[in-house]
Design a protein around this nucleic acid. Structure first.
Length: 550
DNA sequence: AACGCCGACAACCGCCCGCTC
DNA sequence: CGAGCGGGCGGTTGTCGGCGT
């Protein structure tokens, strides 16, 4: 350290700013030292090997922690945080460099399904890997799959542990209602919240934000049966309690008592993914095969955001992604679901509204989310979206609540509801989220068509089908634009209560070595936002691209 | 072969948060 | 209660390699 530093100051002076500096320490070491120490500023940018050496030496002597002391004691012109990151991400001896192995990749996917964007926690599960590494991997992977129009989660991730599901303890849920269909399909658990007061409104306040960030991370088991994430981990599906709960993630701390998770509800309700079921109908057994479709219920725009809730408002990506995809699977088992991720991303970002800087993303998400909501949920108790609906976006004015304006600008509007509004597109029949006739009919129609089409495995080569964009909020309503296409029939399953009986296909069976998936015509993110028949989405997209929305 | 484009990846920064004192 | 600190995560930037022209 000190040794290194002294050496560093005596060498050449060219300032190296590129990554090459790492490989040519002798050059930039000096520049670093001289330039930074001399003027009392902390150096930024790439680390030099000399700096690394200093840091390593320091840590070896003093151990990790107290990073701010590094600068003082070692003379390193780096802030404590920079030192910490450098150590954690690059210098730690136990780091495992190199590409992720297939096993690791799979694990990451599983973990992400469980945890969402909890990179640090995921890193804990992947010894030798850093959160940043995992994040980059995931983002890259996500982007790649987006382009390819592939679902983010492979079907096996979704269903691999179906078998275990029945044995899962559904904390806070009435496990007796959890049914796993035999045919690799999910039955949305008949979630029964004790004492839930629904008041005609399906209110599952951001349940997905339970610690661990996911609906599917419910203690003792998730709506996604443990299997969702457990291949290698034979993990008993730990309830991932974050070390820290962000303000935006405020939720009752789960200490093992399920009751804390679902406080004060006094009317039990059931969640069904079935399109043709009333949430309160209780015909759970016959409900759809797609858990996630049902899970959308949690995002249903009718969740009562008007009521102060302490549930986390920032929904975890995984749940959402999962839900979205699964929901989408309803429509097209094999269709690539091109922009769901995009939507998810948007949703995720927007979840932060009123909480973080992500306010800037509000417009886009809400625009995306609102339209469908507006179109079919006249009296949404969802108070979050209205304000950001682009004025020029055609909406079903007839369904527009009178107090539309009043809803606007509610900083506390949980965009989770907005997300719900998107997702509710696929889970229209939740109690308290009355669908307008149009939607109901459409949904039913879709269902019937699906039944007709049977379980034909989708033809992945069918480009047209690949372009079916299930993320389109109106893709159901706009069904004529693609339902009529025989090429799309492959997208439909034959389940009675699910547009698609085999979500597996919907999710795609290709994740690892996904390059092979490239044959599927890719859809750039947001491509799906174009309403082919309505054109509405073009407006939205355009608006969203405006200032403040990258 | 040279050039430009584009995607993948690595690395870093900034913001935010919770904890501790 | 506030400051300092460590930590998490999103976003950005830079580099590299593949590919097409």
């Amino acid at each position: 350290m000190l040794i290194s530093m002294s050496n560093m100051t005596s060498e050449s002076e060219d300032v190296i700013t590129s990554g090459d500096c790492v490989t040519s320490p002798s050059v930039d070491e000096v520049s670093t030292e001289r330039n930074m120490v001399g003027n009392d500023t902390l150096k930024k940018g790439p680390w030099t090997s000399a700096e690394d050496a200093v840091l390593v030496d320091y840590v070896n002597r003093h151990g990790e922690g107290n990073w701010n002391a590094v600068q003082k004691h070692s003379g390193l012109s780096r802030c404590g945080k920079s030192c910490r990151l450098r150590w954690a991400n690059h210098l730690r001896p136990d780091l495992r460099k190199g590409a992720f192995t297939p096993e690791e990749e799979r694990r990451i996917i599983e973990l992400h399904a469980k945890m969402g964007n909890k990179w640090a926690r995921m890193a804990v599960e992947l010894p030798g890997r850093t959160d940043n590494e995992i994040k980059n991997f995931w983002n890259t992977r996500t982007k790649r799959r987006q382009r390819a129009g592939l679902p983010i989660y492979p079907h096996d991730i979704c269903f691999q542990t179906n078998d275990n599901a029945q044995t899962q303890n559904m904390v806070a849920f009435d496990t007796s209602h959890v049914e796993i269909l035999p045919d690799n399909t999910f039955q949305i658990p008949a979630v029964e919240f004790k004492n839930l007061e629904l008041n005609q409104e399906f209110y599952v306040p951001n349940i997905l934000d339970l610690p661990g960030g996911s609906l599917f991370d419910l203690p003792g088991g998730s709506l996604i049966p443990d299997g969702l994430g457990s291949t290698s981990c034979n993990d008993s599906f730990h309830f991932p309690v974050p070390k820290r709960v962000r303000r935006s993630d405020s939720y009752p701390v789960f200490d093992g008592d399920p009751n804390e998770y679902f406080p004060t509800v006094d009317q039990s309700f059931e969640i069904s993914s079935s399109y043709d079921q009333n949430i309160n109908g209780g015909d759970i057994a016959s409900s759809s095969s797609c858990l996630f479709s049902g899970s959308h219920a949690f995002f249903n725009g009718n969740t009562s955001s008007s009521e102060p809730i302490s549930w986390p408002q920032k929904m975890e990506l995984p749940s959402l992604q999962f839900s979205t995809q699964m929901g989408s699977c309803n429509a097209a088992p094999s269709s690539p679901l091109p922009s769901l991720e995009s939507v998810d991303t948007l949703i995720q970002q927007s979840m932060l509204i009123g909480q973080t800087k992500s306010d800037r993303d509000r417009g886009l998400l809400d625009a995306v989310l609102l339209q469908p909501q507006n179109l079919r949920t006249p009296k949404s108790n969802n108070n979050s979206e209205a304000s950001v609906v682009p004025r020029d976006i055609p909406t079903d004015s007839s369904s527009q609540p009178d107090d539309w304006e009043a809803y606007g600008g509610d900083p506390m509007s949980p965009l989770g509801n907005s997300a719900a509004s998107v997702l509710s597109e696929y889970t229209p029949h939740l109690s308290g989220s009355p669908l307008d006739e149009h939607q109901s009919i459409e949904a039913i129609s879709v269902k019937h068509e699906a039944e007709e089409f049977g379980t034909k495995q989708s033809d992945r080569e069918d480009e047209k089908s690949n372009h079916i964009n299930c993320s389109r909020p109106d893709y159901l309503l706009d069904s004529p634009s693609w339902f009529g296409s025989s090429s799309n029939t492959a997208a439909y399953g034959n389940k009675d209560h699910c547009l698609v009986s085999d979500p597996i296909h919907a999710l795609g069976d290709d994740d690892f070595g996904s390059d092979s998936d490239r044959h599927i015509s890719g859809s750039p993110p947001f491509e799906g936002l174009h309403f082919e028949s309505t054109g509405k989405w073009d407006d939205i997209s355009e608006i969203c691209r405006g200032p403040g929305n990258r």
